[in-house]
């Protein structure tokens, strides 16, 4: 059932936010470059997601309340109206969702009491790599096209995925071993780049709100370059065990980060020796014990 969600935005306290870095110093460049020519079949570049949902879909509690303010698109404080809809869970899918305890969204729980796989430095996997809760230039994606494949690099966890574009067919589900980023093939349908994937490791979440999937999940991604600086992505998963019908993402919008693409290379590995010390002493509050 659809509902209207009015989110109050408060500006105080954002200065420690990684999202503050989404404040696009390249706004002037973007405006100028939007008039430039572009090849709709070239998706190369560093892309920062700017659409409000930092979750797989427009689920309740999935919008980043501060995004519009951070991106300079609205003053703060302000109201951001976003339309939301809950995932079409099966009973089994809902039960699995309830077992995933996130540190974001409506079910926000202290990380020490949660079970987000990223706390153990597990890979985000696909599609979470596309739906991460952190924005550019701090953590975003870069796409690189080669004649036979496309790479998508993720700053977060310093990961990448491969999309084969050499004309091969997607294998059957029982022919591939489940893996973190799945097995992906892509092709152009007009000016839309369509990626179909399967063979996912079911330990990953779709996003930081804890939406689950099985290893039977199939994913379709549809990319369109709307202008020189704007990329659109819509994802749809089909996973009948957990979702009663295909589960479509919101329409995600990405902006080309020309300046950050030249200079920003944070190399955000999740290093267990650093992460676990942080978790034990700081996150879990055990410093002096």
């Amino acid at each position: 059932m659809r509902q209207r969600l009015a989110i109050s935005v408060i500006s105080a306290g954002v200065f420690f936010s990684p999202l503050l870095f989404a404040q696009t110093a390249s706004k002037e460049k973007t405006a100028k470059d939007q008039t430039g020519a572009f090849d709709p079949h070239d998706l190369s570049g560093k892309w920062n997601r700017v659409s409000p949902f930092q979750t797989y879909s427009n689920v309740p509690g999935g919008a980043n309340e501060l995004q519009a303010y951070i991106l300079g698109q609205a003053p703060a404080p302000q109201k951001l109206d976003v339309e939301t809809a809950e995932a079409p869970f099966t009973a089994e899918g809902k039960a699995k969702f309830d077992k995933n305890i996130p540190s974001y969204g409506r079910r926000i729980t202290a990380p020490m009491l949660g079970n987000d796989p990223q706390a153990m430095c597990d890979p985000w996997g696909v599609p979470r790599m596309l739906n991460g809760q952190v924005a550019g230039p701090h953590a975003t994606i870069e796409m690189v096209q080669l004649p036979d494949r496309m790479f998508t690099f993720s700053q977060w966890h310093h990961d990448y995925r491969v999309v084969w574009t050499d004309g091969r067919q997607l294998p059957k589900l029982d022919e591939v071993e489940p893996r973190w980023n799945g097995y992906s093939v892509g092709k152009w349908e007009g000016n839309t780049f369509v990626v179909n994937s399967l063979g996912f490791d079911e330990r990953t979440w779709l996003d930081h709100n804890g939406y689950p999937h099985t290893d039977q999940m199939r994913l379709e991604e549809r990319y369109r370059r709307l202008d020189a600086d704007t990329l659109e992505l819509v994802e749809t998963i089909t996973d009948p065990q957990y979702y009663s019908k295909p589960f479509r993402s919101d329409t995600k919008i990405w902006k080309l980060d020309r300046e950050g693409g030249k200079t920003w290379d944070e190399q955000i590995y999740c290093v267990p020796s650093e992460e676990f010390k942080f978790n034990k002493l700081i996150r879990d509050g055990n410093v002096g014990k």
């Binding site: 408060i10 500006s11 105080a12 306290g13 954002v14 420690f16 936010s17 990684p18 999202l19 980043n64 309340e65 501060l66 540190s103 974001y104 926000i108 729980t109 202290a110 990380p111 020490m112 949660g114 990223q118 706390a119 809760q133 952190v134 942080f278 996150r283 509050g285």
Partner: peptide, 14 residues
């Protein structure tokens, strides 16, 4: 500040 602080470790609930 009553605003949540967005960080990847759920700062506002920690």
């Amino acid at each position: 500040s009553g605003a949540p602080i967005f960080a990847h470790h759920g700062t506002s609930v920690t």
